[in-house]
Design a protein around this nucleic acid. Structure first.
Lengths: 178, 178
DNA sequence: CTTTATATGTCTATCGATAGATAGATTACA
DNA sequence: TGTAATCTATCTATCGATAGACATATAAAG
């Protein structure tokens, strides 16, 4: 699954191949099918684990600090490190681009990833400005999430992590991100 | 090329197939290869035309009005209409996600698309706030571009154009976009 | 303790589909 | 006559998926 995850982050869901995974692990593709009958099963399992791991990491962050800026710094560092790691992308970001080709099981997991992230960002925003309506918080959190995904996407296309850094800096300066 | 463009916007570069294009046009795949010897040639031609058409449209906008807000409204409407049109994405946005699989010719065109868009946004920003350094303008324009691409990406993943609308509204409220 | 049964995981071999690409014949048009 | 465009036919490579054989480990039954 680690290999599959890396493959998707680098080349997308469509490039994920049972044979390639098998070769990298040192077994045959039929054996991979034993564990994940269909490609949809594999993709969904991958996205689920990705979301769960991320959720746990984010929970740790909030348990460590109540400072919104510090939390957001750590959050954006996650997306930055994907770029730093061989120009990779967020697993769910790249899968969103391939949305039309995804089996429904995988689509469901993509949604859950987004929800998980937005829920966490809302908590962080509440630290910074407690007196805002729930609706505005939700919208603001979603906007932050989308903006970061976009920064990662564009920086990846330009093969230049500095684009990501500058863009994040601008998000901060305009007040989009605390 | 219209068919190829629609295919990429919906399914990405990897899903682009000589046979599918040929079938849709009513000819054979070998005939498509006659005009575009390799898939890279086709992809690059596609992205080039996409950029040129977009550039012309944007130039018209600026020729029509000097109001930054109006121009940005029209700009964001372009990305919105892709979503409204069967949940499609910006050609270069979706290609950025597939970056690792793209031939170099295509990558070059992706870069040009981004540059073209950023250049135009800079002009619009200059209408709104003339007294800003060139560097800050550049960064701000890039951030706007990235944020919009991200809004489109996330809205596509959620299969909900309202996500795009809400996100854009938040970008406006925070002052990221004039 | 030994034998039998079941479950797990991997293998070989193969299927049908599809991909990009090419060679060479053929057609249409000016 | 010559060029541009399309055709037929085919190649190699890869894909997801499946069938059925084989090994191994654990559990149940005698």
């Amino acid at each position: 699954m680690a290999i599959a995850k890396a493959t998707v982050q680098a080349h997308g869901y469509n490039a994920l191949s049972f044979r390639e995974i098998a070769k990298a692990v040192g077994i045959k593709s039929a054996s991979v099918h034993y564990h994940f009958p269909t490609k949809g099963d594999l993709g969904a399992a991958l996205a689920r684990r990705y979301t769960e791991d991320g959720e746990a990491y984010l929970a740790d962050l909030l348990a460590t600090s109540n400072d919104a800026t510090w939390c957001m710094d750590r959050y954006m560092e996650i997306f930055r490190s994907a770029l730093a790691d061989d120009n990779r992308m967020c697993l769910c970001g790249i899968m969103s681009a391939e949305f039309d080709d995804l089996p429904t099981e995988v689509r469901t997991e993509i949604d859950k990833f987004t929800e998980t992230n937005v829920r966490w960002i809302i908590k962080v925003l509440e630290l910074a400005k407690p007196a805002v309506s729930a609706l505005q918080l939700q919208e603001h959190a979603m906007a932050i999430f989308a903006a970061i995904e976009g920064a990662q996407l564009v920086a990846r296309g330009g093969q230049d992590i500095a684009i990501y850094d500058r863009t994040i800096r601008t998000y901060r300066r305009t007040g989009l991100i605390p």
